[in-house]
Design a protein around this nucleic acid. Sequence first.
DNA 1: CTGATCAATTGATATAGATCAATGACACTA
DNA 2: TAGTGTCATTGATCTATATCAATTGATCAG
Lengths: 229, 229
Amino acid sequence: MKQENTHCIHCRNKSDIFSGLNDLELGKVNDCRVRMTYAPGEMIFKQGSPCHDFVCVTSGLVKCFIEGEDDKKIIIGFVRPIEYIFSPGAYIDKRHHFTAIACEETSVCLVSTDVFQELVKSNSEFANDFIAKISLQTINLCHQLTNITHKQIPGRMAETLLRLSQVVYKQNPFTSCLSRQDMADMCGMTKESVVRALKTFKDENIITVDGNTIHLLNIPMLETISKIG
Amino acid sequence: MKQENTHCIHCRNKSDIFSGLNDLELGKVNDCRVRMTYAPGEMIFKQGSPCHDFVCVTSGLVKCFIEGEDDKKIIIGFVRPIEYIFSPGAYIDKRHHFTAIACEETSVCLVSTDVFQELVKSNSEFANDFIAKISLQTINLCHQLTNITHKQIPGRMAETLLRLSQVVYKQNPFTSCLSRQDMADMCGMTKESVVRALKTFKDENIITVDGNTIHLLNIPMLETISKIG
DNA sequence: CTGATCAATTGATATAGATCAATGACACTA
DNA sequence: TAGTGTCATTGATCTATATCAATTGATCAG
């Protein structure tokens, strides 16, 4: 863990919102920061638990999901390096409103919410960037709401595949560590429906599926399917 | 329109996030502010249009909804006096990501996003309050996502009724100007399903419905129905 | 008063997708 | 090597809810 000893000032894995901080401010962050690594499947924080720290993902992949009754989940986002997890409860009730779990081997830096909020107050550029990030999260939630509410299975599946390839993995083909259930939880369907939808796309030569590797062959078609719902 | 000439400094209808501003700052707001009134059904801004102003609702009631394909809508919130409409695009792409329509006769103050963002930068308390408000919006969206995705019609209807009574109108019984279609758009169902769900609740003596007035008779039962989905 | 318009209601029908159940495919271990 | 657990796959139902169609009020203009 060479990075363990790296000072935030020299850290190359700085989330972009930190680029505007001066050395003094980064010093404060460095002093309170705790570095952690998580194995695949390990929980970083749980919905409902007290929110003491902001989490910056420096390597790996984290999935964030809302837990409902009866083990029902909704995955609201994935966080990749170098990006913060914005837990909205930090400014409201000091509780996490969703659960974060490491999908792959993941390292993070935890920064105390007190220090973080101090920075928001003292550095207006930082505050501005922070607000932009939360705004983006809001826009994404709106998007997900329409995807789940207004579209049928094929549309939702198409959108999910495009999102995985273009936003989460930024690759095509991409190899994911997500189960069929995870994909189902991204767009409010069952794992069986995911299997059937993938099979349909496969039969129509829109994608190929080989284990956990999915190749999107006809992206315009997927976009059309996603659009018409 | 007596308020037309009132200076922000003396305005009693100040949104709480403005309470921390000094006279100089309020002066800036006052100088750029435009006061508008809208008749019921009139549009305040439309999804996709440029976002030049923040909107503070000083009287009336505004519904905000995402527009999908084929006239499909999702109502993501209602804004009552004295509360801001937080349009997340202001910090991202300068576009509105949902539409706002006056439900009742409504007056608003429009404040230029430039001035607003200046205030966020210059006044850390203001920034802090603003972030708290956006965070709340995010939490509400998460809540709505679970309500729509994880619950069946009775649960969604129960939750919607509780929300109307406890959050939007803060009355029981309450008289709303919303159509059945509006209620349907709050929780992703059809207007026919709303009618049937209301009828079921009425038959079970959980509520009474008289035109646009709804009385929640058995709130614990509604909470149970909402919880079990 | 009389169509005309629009929302609410009700009933009949269709269907998308959930649920249930069985099987297959691996990985792991004892 | 058999045994166990987990996940993916497939097929056979079932059902919640959308859709479609018809009726009833209510409101409004002339």
